[in-house]
Design a protein around this nucleic acid. Structure first.
Lengths: 260, 260
DNA sequence: AAGTGGTCTAGACCACCGA
DNA sequence: CGGTGGTCTAGACCACTTT
């Protein structure tokens, strides 16, 4: 947290927590808030837009308007209750890349990760290209089985450059990968691209997930990049379609800074 | 196009077109561009961020930096060629809600829409709730079959408030729904929420799509809202999983206005 | 009328990186 | 060093909505 902007976000989150415990639902006017935080209104508004994007607050115009704290059910997406879904599926939120365990926690589910394998490998050509390394350079490969409510949910294969992240395997077992990368290497994911298909499970994957061979699975391929546009990791995840609902929310511009 | 910001976006797109035909790859510096467009640099930068989000330009820092026009392959997402995908699937881009026909055109595919039904109906309870109307009020219902390369791709069911959009059915056949709503009612979609599941096709849907009963389909439920937060439409789309790859790209904040 | 968020401006300074 | 994009500021005015 070095930039003013990031500090303001942190301060806002703390303020929201504080207000929530004290039963206050409305934040001060933007002009006052900016002054008390020692930043300009523009900077404050960018931070407000960010936490609004996180679903922490919402803003209302007009004389009785302001920035209000959302006392959400928060476990579920805002309108999901309105969808006529009798299913009890787990939600994979496509708006947030990180944190499968956190995602499950917010849905009131238990999460467990089983490390199937952690190893150094010679990458295939396409993996090397995706990571922007030579095909002779080794990659760290993680294979993890995710459980939700003590039942299999997904199988994840992740590749990272071994040269860029030395001694990564010493951190084993790696549960929250992105946090570790941030902490030990100062690398954070800034953008990503994900492709999703539905394919029948092959024998090996079906065996690990405990499902029938040929059952449809989401196959999600992802690449993520840091702020310089350098690849951070690439992965292939298989999610059980019988337990998973994908959720996606978005919005279009209105001329004011927004975040995603 | 009334606000400066929207006008600048339009001007930028035109400028990019102009430069492209003249073989120029780099836009003028932001300060010059802002002056020549008669707006402040901040406003210009918001517009630049927007068109960057559309994938039209990219920006580079440093002395030799600038805003560069992407001479994209454009049909395909940037890195899809790098994914080891032998498949020839159609891409459903989750970053852009509107324009299935446009989406197909950019992939070099032919598009065709067959209207199966257009009618006024009494909504079910959940549809009425999603649209924020009473269950006694009628809704306009559209059922459309989408073809890509002369083969079925998806079946879409859309509901709108008949009271909010009077005489909508007179515009038949409705191909580009969002454009019609904008043009005739001044309504544009500002945000949306989408839930995706994979379900086996029932007999009727399978028949319309010409696939086997029980074949896995993406079932996408969506609600969209205008800038005031009022519901615009809700729909359920079924996409063939054997012909479809979902694509999703995203990025996180860096303190500067971004768009999605 | 008055207070709120929403947009825009002009200018300053910083961070980056090739000339 | 110097030109580029990236961030921040202070202030003005607009749009909206309740008083």
């Amino acid at each position: 947290m070095s930039t003013p902007w990031a500090e303001v976000i942190t301060a806002l989150r703390a303020l929201v927590d504080d207000f929530t415990t004290n039963g206050v639902e409305k934040l001060p006017p933007e002009r006052d808030l900016a002054a008390s935080l020692g930043v300009s209104r523009g900077t404050l508004r960018r931070a407000l837009a960010h936490v609004e994007g996180e679903g922490v607050i919402y803003r209302v115009r007009g004389r009785a308007g302001g920035s209000f704290i959302k006392q959400v059910v928060e476990s579920a997406p805002i309108h999901s209750a309105m969808f006529e879904l009798r299913s009890n599926k787990l939600i994979r939120d496509l708006n947030h890349v990180a944190g499968v365990p956190q995602m499950l926690a917010r849905q009131g589910r238990s999460a467990r990760t089983e490390i199937i394998a952690e190893s150094l490998e010679q990458p295939t050509g396409s993996i090397a290209r995706l990571l922007g390394i030579g095909s002779g350079e080794p990659v760290v490969s993680l294979l993890r089985l995710r459980y939700a409510d003590e039942e299999t949910w997904s199988l994840e294969r992740i590749y990272l450059s071994a040269e860029r992240f030395p001694n990564l395997l010493d951190l084993s077992p790696i549960e929250a990968l992105y946090q570790e990368l941030e902490r030990h290497y100062g690398v954070s994911v800034h953008s990503f691209e994900e492709h999703i298909e539905v394919n029948p499970a092959d024998a090996r994957v079906a065996g690990l997930l405990g499902i029938h061979k040929g059952a449809p699975l989401y196959a999600m391929r992802r690449v993520s990049w840091d702020e310089n546009g350098d690849p951070v990791e690439t992965s292939v995840d298989f999610f059980r379609t019988d337990r998973t609902r994908l959720r996606l929310a978005g919005w279009f511009d209105s001329g004011d800074p927004r975040t995603s």
